[in-house]
Amino acid sequence: MAAYFQLFFRETKVAIKRWTDVLTGIILFFLIAILFPLISDSNKDFLLSIVGPIMMFSAFFASLLSMQNMFKPDFQNGTIEQLMLSKKSFVGLVFTKTFSFWVFTSLPLIVVSGFIASIYFVTGKDILIVQLTMFLSTLTMVNINAFTAAITLGIRYPGALMTLIITPITLPILIFGSKAIENSILGLDISGPLYFLTGMMMLSLFIGPWITASALKISMD
């Protein structure tokens, strides 16, 4: 158990040292979301109608860019091989790594999303729903991104390939996430999309590390 905490602390130190990488994702999310009210006619109805898709899209895009740094530096300096050789469960270590990545790149995003939602004229309880949706979907997306980053690990310039693999798997999450936010703003029933998002999150939390570990093993030899 202590080994997992140790890994988490190590990831913390790495994240602090490479704070520019961590910040890139957050700034990208902020920029994309802020750009839309600025460049369009910012009347309330229009903004309220697009806040759902914009939030999901910005989160998706920001995660696309930051995921390239998930395993690459550690792959290059041999850390991943060390993790594979250790006595602890590799799947558990991968889970810790993925979770710490989420903590540093997505948790600030969730906090910021509340602020951005208020710029889109979202009020009161809906802001909490936006943050909840962000929480559920970023947790799912980080597992999917981990798998994709792991599987494209030896390839030069994997950018387009990663997008091609990630999009089909992430699309349902984006669709249901924006539907949840839209329904909440319109006052409709939000339990349907939220149940789906929670289900996907649970599924990805269990399958994600396992399938990422398999992908890493494949990429290693």
């Binding site: 390839i155 390939l161 091609l164």
Partner: peptide, 13 residues
């Protein structure tokens, strides 16, 4: 997209 991802991934490695 899944098919294209499969084909591209296979070709890239």
């Amino acid at each position: 997209l899944l098919y294209l991802g499969y084909i591209t991934l296979h070709a890239s490695i």
